[in-house]
Amino acid sequence: MIEALELSRRFGRQWALRRFSGRFEAGTVSAVVGHNGAGKSTLVGLIAGLLRPTEGALSVLGHDCATGPRPPAVRSGLGVMLHQPYVYPDLSGAENLELVSALYGQPLTSKARHSALHRVGLDKAARRAARTYSRGMLQRLSLARLLVQTDARAWLLDEPATGLDSEGHQLVVELVSELRDSGRAVVMVSHQAALVEALADVSLTLERGRLAS
């Protein structure tokens, strides 16, 4: 589903990622771990399409994504959950979820919206402005996207359990397991050893931009 070959990215003179090669398969959760500055977020940015590789090849969902604009099939087939929650503070939780879903061409029915928000524990706060949410609630709202972006065949999750309590951790484990069981490829960046241990089928360690042997 996602394959990188000698993928590299340089910022100025500094290589953030150097000759990374790896495959992320369908129905597999691949954890990318490493210290701060190891190149994990750079790898996510490259696969997501927010960064352009300096060198190397990248294939996402069968399309060459190292150069040129990405086809809509890749954009709609790749779900991305960045480290910061993609949220507009002046819209309610329900409106934020509806907007993201509509942007991905999947308008939400009120039943589906309620079901997703209920699953992440935000049904009672659905009509409140996201500005009033705590960090954990914002993260739960991001997690609700995993339930509504059903066209995504692969997911990139950058620190999916940030700000969550133990119940929230369990929710992440359940949701990511469901993605794997439904045949999605999941690439998960996390510092949390317990989460990696609970979910990862494959674990890749980055050290100073390189894949550790």
Partner: peptide, 17 residues
């Protein structure tokens, strides 16, 4: 508005581009 909470990245990643 788009800078807060990485909203611009979210918009740019959407299928319409």
């Amino acid at each position: 508005r788009e800078r807060d909470h990485a909203a611009m990245s979210g918009l740019l990643l959407a299928p319409a581009g």
